[in-house]
Design a protein around this nucleic acid. Structure first.
Lengths: 197, 197, 197, 197
DNA sequence: GATGAATGAGCATTCATTCAT
DNA sequence: AATGAATGAATGCTCATTCAT
């Protein structure tokens, strides 16, 4: 019989890869990176232990793949707003999208946040976070559109706020007043000073 | 030599215990709980591996001991500021103390934040953190001193900001500009609106 | 297109088989049997992993096929010199051929020597090598052509020398001065005593 | 109770270390380096798998320790003959000692020779053999006491001869005429040319 | 003939914990 | 109170081999 065609193989690979990433994301988030064994990822993904190494070089590289996806998602989100001319509207759009993410895909945000703090995860991703910080500086310029220093501080504050809100939402759950916070934040950060009085 | 008196034994015990906790705090904070071996704690504490089990039942119980201390420290900090009369000054004091904690005792803050989200590390920590975060609602009233709804939103925002900043500091490390953020936050949240214009 | 004729199929089969054996020989020789993966053989042969099992039952059987070839080559080499009349020339021819083998087909010699002593790799190789080494006694008579006892000692010495040189070449690699040793050995063992003074 | 005294610990350690090395030497020799599992070494040594890592960093380091011991033995052997003034007597002493080793500790020589040829072993000990070759050059000077080039060739030939004899002895066993070969070799390499006629 | 995804047994290594002294 | 040798379960990872297509 003829061997499978390349596209077929590619489809199979993509499917398996995603099963692995989904299983890993959930386990890393719920049990922690160190406490999650390759064996358990395989079991949850419904495949064999060995197959994982057909797709990822190591446990660490699974982690990096997940982070990479998340980074890309964030970048795409921001890239989509680059063309908005008005800086205030640009900020508003970013903030609203973040809130949407939190409320629409709470599980994903939860897992990412929780994972980012895993001990061991940080050790494994030092290089990664260094780059992430540089990115956040660039984004500062894009989002707030001010001079270098001020832009950095403001974008870091907004970033910290969003992270903190995500964190609290994770811990408090539904009774955390996301909507009100969104309204307030937009009022504080996305309106001209004139409007504040 | 005369046999040691009971108090002397007690003093020796206490000293060893402290050495273990100090060593463990530093290692847990820097390398994470899982990545820290009992062996390395013993080495840093200058004692033998076996002796640790004379003071603590298990590796987990060392973590719990440290965790308890850190929680208590945070609570004391806030409790001490409840009596400040002026709401703005009260807010300022709390914010400043949080920043001080972050920069002066980064290991404690790391441990608190990381362990708070460490899923499945242990039931005991979960209880700890759940209670701690619940208190923030009550504190909201105490700190901001406004009417119920507004006070809640503002205190939640400040809480989220502080959490987010802690989280980012943990991730990005020394390059995160804590001082500038502190100045900006105090400017935004702890001055009368009159000053804003 | 007309279906291929049986001979064409046979030609394809033979070609694939050769590619596999050539790739395996190089890899076994350079990295060792255990350290060579089927995957790497397939890659070097330019075929797929699975196809190898169409030609060989197992990794071991690839080794056996190579081993058999190498043994046969050695036997042919010696057999071809049996008819040289002059004992000194006969010795010289054998010695030179051995050196040629060592320097021109180092992988074969490596494989032969290494596998000969590879304990427990397989029963089959053991038989191979046992027979091969037994023949050296008979060959002793043939090569040196002297009386029984003296011939035995001399042929054993030459045999041991050649084995030892092969072994050292395998261990030390290119830095081992094969040429100089060859010259010296021929001077010592293949010239009349008259010439020695 | 008081802890064991340092000397006691040292004695225990030495004993365990030797059990491990003895077990490893035998298994590496009989089954091959790659085919020998840490588990099997532990079992043969009568200890637990984990304990091995209290004494050796890795499987490789066990191998290196065994080689190191062998090297040292060889060095001691040669060092003991350095003071013999007459070069011919020096050579004779070395050769006789090697033969003694072969006949008195055949198992040890066998295991060392077999191990040296293990694939995987060679890969693990490249650095080692490089040094070994340098050593053998120095030894050449010491043993044969001639000018640089000639000394090297002669010492390499003697070395190869001894290796080859060991190899053949391993394969032929008791019927290999060690004594006669020894006599012949000493006659060829350790007497003045005058005596050869 | 040919492909490469999938399996699963096997292995080196780590580490919390125990225990004899 | 103190030591560190000893244990053994757990884990990441490799690789020969199978199999659906």
């Amino acid at each position: 019989m003829a061997p499978r065609r390349p596209e077929q193989f590619e489809a199979i690979r993509e499917k398996s890869r995603e099963k692995i990433l989904a299983a890993a994301l959930e386990l890393f988030g719920n049990k922690g990176y160190d406490a999650t064994s390759i064996e358990s990822i395989a079991k949850k993904a419904g495949i064999s232990k060995g197959l994982i190494y057909n797709y990822f070089e190591s446990k660490k590289s699974i982690l990096l793949a997940i982070f990479g996806d998340a980074m890309k998602m964030g970048e795409d989100m921001i890239a989509g707003q680059i063309n908005v001319k008005n800086p205030l509207l640009r900020k508003k759009a970013i903030i609203e999208m973040t809130f949407d993410m939190i409320s629409e895909r709470p599980e994903y945000m939860k897992l990412l946040t929780v994972m980012a703090l895993q001990p061991g995860v940080m050790a494994e991703t030092k290089e990664f976070t260094k780059n992430a910080y540089k990115k956040s500086e660039e984004w500062g310029q894009i989002i707030t559109g001010k001079g270098k220093k001020e832009a950095l501080i403001e974008s870091l504050m907004i970033g910290a706020l969003m992270d903190g809100i995500t964190l609290n939402f994770i811990m408090y759950g539904e009774r955390y007043p996301l909507k009100e916070l969104k309204k307030e934040i937009i009022k504080v950060y996305c309106t001209t000073k004139r409007n504040k009085n």
